[in-house]
């Protein structure tokens, strides 16, 4: 996993609440057996007409947001299914950070497993950044994970909270499975206990 430290980039504004995983990556693209290559279908049904032409109004089809690395969205971003294809598609497109007032649980967890930083900020802060993002290339936004801050183009700084363990893993690009296997002895001990206490499991 690519570590995430700090990022300064163009942010795409998507002022919609409840952006669900079906919008992020529609199910017809879930038939892949790979993790990569989904970026071209990110937000597919909002981005293309049924015959595959770009919808010019859609933010990710417009300059400079075609090159966005940050997404700013409304509350409950990523609700719906558990499909990890959603963060894979964001990542493949080039988005490394999503900023919203709230996130759906499973999506939020999936981001961390793929080196994407989900930043939760109060509505007022998101509104400020949303306005900033509308200015396009003239308003680069900086996200700093070690400092836990987001800085708008006018210099306003917003601090965010993040789980220390997840921060640590993201900063160092650590693989969860490797970390867990270091605790194999605890799992062995648990299994021995389980066998004695709930043998039917």
């Amino acid at each position: 996993m690519t570590p995430f430290t700090s990022l300064t980039g163009i942010a795409a504004p998507m002022p919609l609440v409840n952006i669900d995983t079906d919008m992020i990556i529609p199910k017809q693209f879930l038939k892949t057996i790979q993790r990569t290559g989904l970026g071209k279908n990110l937000f597919d049904e909002m981005r293309y007409t049924p015959d595959g032409r770009e919808i010019p109004d859609f933010v990710l089809n417009r300059e400079p947001w075609r090159r966005a690395e940050i997404l700013i969205a409304g509350a409950n971003f990523g609700c719906g299914s558990s499909r990890e294809h959603a963060p894979w598609a964001l990542l493949d497109f080039g988005i490394r950070c999503v900023i919203a007032p709230s996130f759906a649980d499973i999506f939020h967890g999936n981001c961390f497993k793929n080196g994407i930083l989900p930043v939760t900020l109060p509505q007022a802060a998101v509104d400020h950044l949303m306005e900033d993002a509308q200015k396009g290339a003239n308003a680069r936004i900086t996200v700093n994970l070690p400092e836990q801050t987001v800085t708008a183009s006018d210099g306003t700084v917003f601090a965010f909270e993040i789980d220390p363990f997840r921060k640590h893993c993201l900063l160092h690009g650590l693989d969860d499975i490797g970390l867990t296997l270091e605790k194999a002895a605890a799992i062995d001990a648990y299994e021995a206990r389980l066998k004695a206490e709930r043998p039917w499991v």
């Binding site: 993790r35 299914s81 558990s82 499909r83 990890e84 963060p87 499973i106 967890g109 999936n110 497993k113 793929n114 969860d176 499975i177 867990t180 296997l181 194999a184 799992i187 299994e191």
Partner: peptide, 16 residues
């Protein structure tokens, strides 16, 4: 509860 694919791999490998 539901989990993502990275967690599927994690459970397959570690049962946790």
């Amino acid at each position: 509860h539901g989990i993502g694919t990275s967690e599927v791999e994690h459970v397959l490998a570690t049962q946790t």
